[in-house]
């Protein structure tokens, strides 16, 4: 496998072909904040918090580090005024949904995000898809899914499968960046009041 040399934050980094910017950065200990990323799962690019500046042949563009593959002579800046501004905005928007999330609050402190900037609409779910993807890709149970679309999109356990599988698993609970209790609530709801099947 051929090695690719790229520059991240002024530092020369050696990466393998097919790696993403995020993986390359993590291999040398450069921290890029993420919410929807998980090592065991396929990259998703849902939260966009890992947005970085990528410079290719003199042109700079904003890309999601968890999705963008490394290439030769790529120059990456993980911190810049513009990147910080974008992350701050993303955090403020997410905080409107999950104002009490520890993980979000810590990040908000770092980027100076104001959790009261937007009117609160606590749905707790920030649609990172970690639970849904973990259930599909790692445990392969497919007990939880996204339903509906747009502003009404939400996670939902499938009662028939959840009743059999979830009680002994619950691995998705700890993945949630907002509040593990929320998943517990949705699960309990699915088990106690399954959608009418008749």
């Amino acid at each position: 496998m051929s090695k690719i040399i790229l520059i991240i934050d002024g530092k020369e980094v050696e990466a393998n072909e097919g790696m993403t910017i995020l993986q390359a950065a993590q291999s040398v200990g450069i921290v890029i904040p993420t919410l929807c990323h998980h090592e065991l799962l396929e990259p998703y690019g849902g939260c966009r918090l890992c947005t970085v500046e990528a410079e290719v042949r003199g042109r700079t563009k904003l890309v999601a580090a968890c999705l963008y593959p490394v290439e030769k002579d790529l120059i990456v800046r993980t911190k810049s005024q513009q990147v910080d501004k974008i992350r701050k905005m993303i955090l403020e928007l997410l905080l409107a949904h999950a104002p009490d999330s520890r993980e979000l609050q810590d990040l908000a402190k770092e980027y100076g995000a104001d959790k009261n900037r937007f009117g609160k609409e606590p749905s707790f779910c920030i649609h990172c898809g970690l639970c849904v993807r973990y259930c599909a890709e790692v445990t392969k149970k497919n007990a939880i899914c996204f339903i509906d679309k747009g502003t009404t999109r939400e996670i939902s356990f499938i009662p028939e499968i959840a009743a059999k599988e979830c009680w002994n698993c619950k691995e998705c609970f700890s993945l949630c960046p907002t509040e593990a209790l929320q998943a517990a609530f949705v699960l309990a709801q699915a088990l106690a009041f399954p959608a009418p099947t008749e």
Binding site: I147, D148, E154, V186, Q189, F193, A195, P196
Partner: peptide, 24 residues
Amino acid sequence: MKGDTPGALGLRLWGRGMSPTYAR
């Protein structure tokens, strides 16, 4: 669980919760 009366329980408790399309 099939014998439940989802109509009576479902709507109130589902709210914006799971399977809104069924609950409605």
